[in-house]
Lab assay of single mutants.
Amino acid sequence: SEEWVEIALRLLELGREANINGTILNLHKEEIEELIRRLLKRI
C-alpha cells in the first residue's frame, strides 16, 4: 500500500490550507506531527 503517498498528499493539502488561511496550523499541529511520524517509520 502507498500509505506514504497519502500522508504526503495530506501534508501538502494542510500546507495549502495554511497559506490560504495564513494560519500557523495550530489546528492541525497534532495531525501533522502524527502524519510525519508515520511517514518517517516507512523510510
Rank of each mutant, 00 (worst) to 15 (best):
E31W: 13
G22C: 04
L40G: 04
A18F: 09
E17F: 07
R42P: 09
E3S: 15
N21V: 12
N21Y: 02
S1A: 09
I32E: 00
R10N: 03
K41D: 13
I36T: 01
R42S: 12
K41P: 05
N19C: 14
E3W: 14
A18Q: 04
E31R: 02
E33F: 13
K29S: 13
E2R: 11
L14Q: 02
E6A: 06
R38K: 08
R38M: 09
L11W: 06
L27P: 09
I20L: 11
H28C: 11
K41E: 13
S1Q: 11
R42K: 14
L9N: 06
R42M: 12
I7A: 04
I20G: 05
A8R: 03
L11N: 00
E34K: 05
K29P: 14
G15P: 01
E31G: 03
E13M: 05
E33C: 15
L35G: 00
N19W: 15
R10S: 02
G15Q: 04
E33K: 10
I43L: 12
E6V: 12
I20D: 05
E31A: 11
L14A: 03
L40I: 11
I32T: 01
A8G: 03
K29W: 15
V5N: 02
R16C: 15
R10M: 10
N19P: 04
R37Q: 05
W4K: 01
L12N: 01
E34D: 10
W4P: 01
A8I: 15
E2Q: 10
E17Q: 08
A8K: 03
I36R: 00
L39W: 03
G15K: 02
E30S: 09
N19S: 15
K41I: 11
L11S: 00
I24K: 03
I43W: 10
E3I: 13
I32S: 00
L27V: 05
I24Q: 03
E3F: 15
L35A: 04
R38A: 12
A18K: 03
R16M: 08
E17M: 13
R10V: 11
E2V: 07
E6Y: 07
K29M: 15
S1C: 15
H28T: 14
L12I: 13
E6I: 11
E6P: 02
G22H: 06
E17I: 08
N26D: 13
E31Y: 13
A18G: 06
K41F: 08
G22M: 11
L39E: 01
I20Y: 05
K41L: 08
L25H: 06
R10F: 13
L9E: 04
E30H: 06
N19K: 12
A18R: 03
L25R: 11
V5R: 06
L39M: 06
E6C: 15
S1E: 13
L11T: 00
E34F: 04
I24D: 13
T23F: 12
I20K: 10
E3N: 07
N19R: 12
I43S: 03
N19E: 10
L27M: 12
K29R: 10
E13K: 03
H28M: 15
E34R: 10
R42V: 14
E13A: 04
H28L: 15
L27D: 13
L25I: 12
G22Y: 04
G22N: 11
R37V: 03
A8W: 12
R38H: 04
E31H: 09
E13S: 03
I43T: 02
R38E: 10
A8H: 03
I43V: 04
E33Q: 08
H28F: 15
A18C: 15
K29Y: 14
L11F: 07
S1H: 13
G22P: 14
L27W: 13
I24C: 15
L14E: 02
N21M: 12
I32Y: 02
K41G: 07
I36S: 00
L9I: 06
A8D: 01
W4A: 02
L11Q: 00
S1Y: 13
L39N: 00
I43E: 02
W4R: 02
I20T: 08
N26V: 08
I24S: 11
L35C: 08
L25Y: 01
L35V: 02
L12R: 01
I24W: 12
E6Q: 07
L14N: 02
L12M: 07
I20F: 10
L9R: 07
I32V: 09
T23R: 04
L39T: 01
E3M: 07
N21F: 15
R16H: 10
L14K: 01
R37W: 10
K29F: 15
T23K: 10
E2K: 13
L12C: 15
E13Q: 08
L11P: 00
L27T: 11
L11I: 07
L39Y: 04
E2H: 12
L25V: 10
I7Q: 01
I36P: 00
E33L: 14
L35H: 01
E17G: 04
A8N: 01
R38Y: 09
I32L: 07
V5D: 02
E17Y: 07
L11A: 02
E34I: 09
E3G: 12
E6F: 12
E34H: 07
E31F: 12
L25W: 04
L12T: 03
I7T: 01
L27I: 12
A8T: 10
L25D: 09
E31P: 01
E30F: 07
E3Q: 10
L14R: 02
R37G: 04
I7F: 04
R42G: 11
N21E: 05
N21P: 08
L40Q: 05
I20M: 04
L39H: 01
E2F: 14
H28K: 07
L27K: 14
L39R: 00
N19D: 08
R42E: 11
I20R: 08
G22K: 12
W4G: 02
N21S: 05
K29A: 14
R10G: 06
T23A: 11
I43R: 01
N19A: 14
N19L: 15
I36H: 00
L40T: 01
N21I: 15
L9H: 05
L39D: 00
L11M: 05
E2A: 12
L9K: 04
I43D: 01
L14V: 06
